[in-house]
Amino acid sequence: MLGSVLKRLVQGLLVTFCVVFISFVILRSIPGDPAKVMAPNATPEQQQAIRDGMGLSEPVLTQFRMYVGKMLGGDLGESYFKSDSVLNILGQSIPLSAILVVFSLLVSVVLSLILGTIAGTHSGTLLDRLISSIAVLFQSMPNYWVSTMLVILFGVRAGIFPTMGYSGAMSCVLPVVALVLPLTAVLTKVIRSSLIESYSQEFVRAAYARGVSRVGAYFRYALRNSLIPVCISIGSQLGFLIGSIVVVEYVFNFPGLGYTALNAILRRDYNLVQAIIILFSVFFVVVNIIIDLGTTRLDPRLRKAEGEI
């Protein structure tokens, strides 16, 4: 168990290192020069001085070595434009995005457990078809369009929620709704089909034969078995969720990580972009390890296999 966790951690570190290296090289070769964006009217000599000051005149590999050295010491550099350290900027935007991720995940999981259970235990009925069709509909709607529709309905027309920027908890409501709708749709479908699958399995029938009640069989056997695919799909949806966050934050001008990332890329703010990429890939690696461990915990068959290795 511990060995496999360690192995995954080492692999994850390697993947993160590759991502950091590749993105470092790519970012340095993007056409467009931060010196020109920062000081468009400066003379070529002044711009050269800016580049020297930021260490941009060194060869890429030397720059990379310096960057990693500083990073290990906890220094991610300064933002070129906000005259603040990258760590501070991230410190302001991460909590905002984290609120969106946590709340949309929580709400989606609860909603989809309810809806998926209703659909899965009543499969083939009108109720099931209704839930499944609405799920397909919301899955087919592009996130940014849903966000814009929410802005029109609740912001522009009704004026209930703020739609631009961040001004307290109310600002999070519409972005969370925009993230919850497609996520709930996907998870509801997964829970529904895996519940149907579980109920056709022998261990559920065996539980009934032993006299386990309907509710008991649902919680202890059917639901538990169904949580494995749900866990896996939450893992794959998290990557998707991070992408959606960039989009939703863009539409709502919500100053979280995604909005910061988009602006940083457009302004060639290398240090900031680099830090965000590192953050994303570390997050992704950690989530994958947690999901792997979670599925192993949930599935007795996998647990046994793990013990034997």
Binding site: Q11, L14, V15, T16, C18, V19, I22, S23, I26, L27, S29, I30, P31, G32, G239, I242, G243, V246, V247, G258, A261, L262, I265, L266, V273, I276, I277, F280, S281, F284, V285
Partner: peptide
């Protein structure tokens, strides 16, 4: 396979933003 890991480690929108400015 590690290459596919790296590729999937990048959120698509961020990747696209970088690539399309490149």
């Amino acid at each position: 396979m590690r290459l596919t890991d790296v590729q999937m480690g990048f959120p698509f929108v961020v990747l696209a933003m970088i690539a399309l400015t490149l």
